[in-house]
């Protein structure tokens, strides 16, 4: 019984978390700040790609924000 309760509460929590997403967010007219270029997740693609290139050639990790990439013999 208790087990069942726990299980159903997990299911409910999972559904709530999914549905909870609809509590997050903004109305279309509240996008004034998010619409600014500076609020793009990657607001300077050139700088990001230059940095990624350096770290790709100097470290063992790559990717995450975008593709792990490659295309360069530097690593």
């Amino acid at each position: 019984m208790l087990n069942k309760l726990i299980r159903s509460s997990i299911v409910i929590t999972a559904i709530y978390m999914l549905a909870g997403c609809s509590d997050l967010g903004v109305k279309p007219w509240e996008r004034d700040l998010l619409a600014q270029d500076e609020m793009n997740l990657i607001n300077d693609p050139i700088e990001t790609s230059l940095n990624d290139h350096v770290y790709f050639s100097k470290e063992a990790s790559s990717g995450g924000q975008g593709f792990a990439g490659g295309g360069c013999g530097c690593n």
């Binding site: 997050l24 967010g25 903004v26 509240e30 998010l34 997740l41 995450g64 593709f67």
Partner: peptide, 19 residues
Amino acid sequence: TQVINRRTLMQFNYGVSQS
């Protein structure tokens, strides 16, 4: 990518790369 509120934007990614 999820808009949290008027001031906050959040992103989660999972990536897999096979070479």
